[in-house]
Write a protein that binds this DNA or RNA. Structure first.
Lengths: 283, 283
DNA sequence: TTGCTCCTCACGTCACGTGAGGTGGC
DNA sequence: TTGCTCCTCACGTCACGTGAGGTGGC
């Protein structure tokens, strides 16, 4: 009993009840050095916590509820109050917002998967050779949509100032290594006409040869495009017509055109053998 | 190569690229019986997946993104399309909404923890003996707020019809076992005056003896009340005045009174030794 | 003395990821 | 033949939870 009311010591059980952390969790936090008891009896091993540790324990509990890793929590509780601590917390909150976005995407993709029919309107078509302004970058799967959007709008803004004109819908190339590793070099491109000498300083000039592809129009939010990849890849495999090379997407109707996600249209193109006769309609 | 375009077989690597599931994950799903390859070569052990398995794999991927446990996913993909499957998915989505609520609480509690000062305005006071209409129930920590709210509003609606009048703010009792186990028998009560013979059929009649408590007014959202428990319990420990018995809360300003969460007021009462002189002000 | 709390291992859980070490097919 | 893909263990990861078996303090 501390008559002056400062830093009374509590058993692990009492501390557990005050902080709503389990005894097992408290022992674990001791083991990994996140919350050391004020005093450990050297003969019995009994842990004693000071009441001044209650706020720290509450902070740890809330951060764990937000699934912050213990290694990050160590940094937060190790640094004194102030900008460092707040920054670490804010960084984690930003990570969580990303996670919430991913969750929202998964929910709507799940709905699409359960409700919408499997797309089967595949066409074979000859892609003519293309000259385009392009940007390349090593990007991972999660960041790819944002990266492509940003690069394309950068290119599109520059077409006119460079004295060029757009000759077709904007697109992107995805090497198969990108799908295997979840990361790889992407190419965002805008087909153009005109004199490219000035443009070559600021952008890559891409010359795509003629190729033959199987194509399905993906309808709806771009974040569900992997559903369409599954359908297209399946059809190509079933017909045994696959060829090497990157897949290609053309962005026909995007958030820049309409706010209605159901109206978005993306052409997904899978390379196939060049001897195939272009056809339209169902497989 | 299947000339008729049905159920072509894919290697695990090809299947992985079409479904955006890792090879390791696919092997794991095989091991635990969630997604069995169409064909396993008995001599080499090579797995072959049919293209008709792509939609199932996509479903699994989306459910895993929503953190559905594999045991639940087994039920979903094991049952045919239809009400069973949809129910299982909807149940999980409901669980996720609860999780999102908890996350929102944790974020605002964290903010309160980082911004607001540690409450120290504790008072000792004599709680007079109380007669009250009550409901008891075994509830766990997560459900306690909803349970108490529901029971209290049930009691409050019945006071007048039973010919009684309210004699004080509504409250609840929390035995210490509730905090240890995260579950226990709670008592929600409304102090009343009048003839209790009729009420005894529908409610418990609670007679609380006079006791002495240390009390702090918790300001703000009820879901952060555990912060105040930590402060109050610390102060009681520091003064070495704790006594046995359940803690008690009185709900002074609640969502029934105002929409402004910052204005909510809850008295949190911790039992202390009966020989203490009532005082007000800081500890 | 009884019962409650505390202790330390050691192992389990969950959904994979990470190598190690080796084989199969073009 | 080379390189790529595939295979099977076995172990690691993360944050604890779950006993087992035993001790300490009132």
């Amino acid at each position: 009993v501390n008559a002056h009311g400062v830093n009374a010591l509590l058993t692990i059980g009492e501390f557990s009840r005050l902080t709503f952390l389990s005894v097992k969790a408290l022992r674990h936090y001791h083991d990994v050095g996140i919350l050391e008891p004020t005093l450990v009896d050297s003969s019995t091993g009994y842990r004693s916590y000071g009441t001044e540790q209650v706020p720290t324990a509450q902070l740890i509990r809330r951060l764990r509820e937000l699934e912050m890793p213990l290694d990050d929590i160590r940094v937060v509780v190790g640094s004194a109050d102030g900008p460092d601590r707040n920054d670490a917390v804010l960084v984690h909150l930003a990570r969580m917002e990303l996670q919430l976005e991913r969750t929202a995407v998964a929910v709507s993709a799940l709905r699409a998967l359960l409700e919408r029919p499997w797309p089967i309107d595949v066409v074979y078509r000859r892609e003519p050779a293309v000259v385009a302004l392009a940007r390349r970058g090593v990007v991972d799967l999660a960041a790819s949509e944002a990266w492509v959007t940003a690069e394309l709008s950068g290119i599109l803004r520059s077409v006119r100032p460079l004295g060029l004109s757009i000759s077709g819908p904007a697109g992107a190339l995805f090497p198969s290594a990108f799908f295997e590793a979840g990361e790889g070099e992407l190419t965002a491109f805008v087909p153009v006409r005109g004199d490219l000498t000035m443009a070559a300083d600021r952008f890559d000039v891409l010359e795509l040869p003629e190729t033959t592809v199987a194509m399905i129009v993906h309808e709806g939010a771009y974040s569900h495009v992997c559903n369409t990849y599954g359908a297209l890849g399946s059809l190509v495999a079933e017909h045994g017509v696959g060829a090497d090379g990157p897949t290609r997407e053309y962005f026909l109707v995007t958030p820049a055109h309409t706010d209605d996600a159901a109206a978005f249209r993306t052409e997904v193109c899978w390379p196939v053998r060049g001897d195939l006769v272009p056809i339209g309609g169902a497989a």
